[in-house]
């Protein structure tokens, strides 16, 4: 096994359905056909998944499911997979995380975004894993899946300060794994505690480090929805580490349980 050269990082950026997708590559394939093919495969997979799960488009499976137009037998296997992940997360969070919630009008809405984003990026990253002797770091709107085993030099992930998103509050090295952050910094208060239907209080952001982005993302959202209980809940989740920033600016590091 030859070590990849200490080469420069090549970067690519595209927007898929309103989400900025950033990629950093290092090692053998950074700007060749293989790298570009993998990058296009990432974007295509994210677009394909959006066409199934977007709730902003009326014709998607999720929109039709939300309106009760489809029965269980009629939706694809990956929808079952996402709903099963959601059910697991709902149980684990005592109901704070839920994909079926009442909206302001009291109607039940189906919103799988809290599960799909990380899960989709994990799936899309498979194209990058196939690049031999190459390190990759993929960000889907601030949620990151990365591998640095070709060079053995961990990617350095900065965690944004929720009080000032232009600044970094912490860093974490990732050799092979994922980092997800949930908070209200950019999109406003879109995450709610499904038990109350209201945005959580007492917490500014939650960052979770895990082997998969699927669970890093789900747990960051679930912990954030739990509000004041975020750090304590996360501490009991196996294989997760992270950082909870309180609304008062306090920081709590969560170590592996």
């Amino acid at each position: 096994m030859t070590a990849a050269p200490e080469s420069a990082i090549a970067r690519k950026v595209e927007h898929v359905m309103g989400l900025p997708i950033s990629l950093a590559l290092r090692g053998r394939h950074t700007d060749d056909t293989a790298a570009n093919d993998a990058w296009h495969a990432v974007l295509a997979e994210l677009g394909r998944i959006d066409a199934v799960f977007s709730r902003y488009r009326p014709d998607t499976v999720i929109s039709r499911l939300g309106r009760g137009e489809l029965t269980e037998a009629q939706y694809p296997a990956e929808v079952h997979e996402v709903l099963a992940l959601a059910a697991t997360a709902e149980r684990a969070s005592g109901g704070a995380f839920a994909v079926r919630r009442a909206n302001a009008e009291g109607d039940e809405v189906l919103d799988t975004d809290g599960v799909v984003k990380g899960w989709a990026a994990d799936r899309a990253a498979e194209a990058l894993r196939a690049l031999d002797d190459t390190d990759f770091c993929l960000s889907a709107g601030g949620d990151i899946v990365a591998r640095a085993t070709a060079t053995g030099r961990a990617w350095r992930i900065g965690i944004e300060d929720p009080r000032d998103p232009q600044r970094i509050i912490a860093t974490v090295p990732v050799l092979d794994g994922a980092v997800a952050t949930s908070g209200a910094a950019h999109r406003g208060r879109h995450v709610v505690d499904a038990r109350t239907g209201r945005p959580p209080t007492g917490v500014a952001s939650v960052t979770v480090v895990h082997r998969t982005l699927t669970w890093a993302d789900i747990d960051a959202t679930a912990a954030y929805a739990l509000g004041p209980g975020a750090a304590e809940w996360l501490r009991h989740r196996v294989g997760r580490t992270g950082l909870v920033v309180g609304a008062d600016g306090s920081t709590t590091l969560v170590r592996a349980s």
Binding site: C137, G142, G158, I168
Partner: peptide
């Protein structure tokens, strides 16, 4: 891997980071 708090909040350049995780 547990996040390491930076002593004073840094901008991306001085923190030497590759990618940013945020909301």
């Amino acid at each position: 891997a547990v996040p390491t708090l930076v002593q004073e909040t840094l901008d991306a350049q001085s923190a030497k980071i590759d990618m940013v995780s945020g909301a």
